[in-house]
Amino acid sequence: MLTVCDLHVKYGNIEALHGISLNVEEGEIVALLGANGAGKSTTLMSIMRLAPPEGPVVTKGTISYNGTDLLPIQAHNIIARQGIGLVPEGRHIFGNLTVFENLKLATFARRDRERIQQDYERVFSLFPRLADRRTQRGDLLSGGEQQMLAIGRAFMSGVKFILLDEPSMGLSPLLMLELFRVLKSINESGTTILVVEQNARLALQYANRAYVLEAGKIVLEGKAEDLATNPEIHRAYLG
């Protein structure tokens, strides 16, 4: 489904990724693990084609999705036309908009009204908290609720493939677990997921496969259950 091949990217003059390759198949949950600064977020930003200054510049390599070259496509069309969405690090909720407006905004490019109605219902059943707070401003939500809203937004944009950047950051252990359960359920109803995670133990528990990034290179890859028992992973991330 998604194939990244020999990707080199730069922020300004600094190369952040030194030729990474990865692929995600339809229906999978794939985890991208690694320490701070390893290039995990950069990888997601590159796939989403976010423009500088936020996004990096691809200097070499290819990103293709269902056979389409993503490199010449603008970020908003990655979501609207290609059907790939990103739940960004730090959530980026529109704090001056209500919960419902945040969700409605994500349907900007969609024209399938009936499906949109179904998707609202799905989001509110996955996250009943959001239904309770639908008229509340985004900046008044707790961290956990904001994360739910961020995932709900990605869902409302009608994408088939969701990238998540550190979804568990700042959440209590209980909420983290809850979050991954919801992700699993979204995945089981047909959405492919690529998740960047600091909490490797949790991610490996839910993912099918994982890649480990270190200083802009992929150093390990494999099935989640194999990586979970890999001594190197244990030492570095599960210690």
Partner: peptide
């Protein structure tokens, strides 16, 4: 309107607007 909401959204967080599938 969604365009009006997008105007308000940009003033709050410009980076996240394209992520909603909205051409800034």
């Amino acid at each position: 309107t969604r365009l009006g909401m997008a105007m308000r959204a940009i003033s709050y967080d410009r980076m996240a607007v394209p992520l909603m599938g909205i051409p800034v």
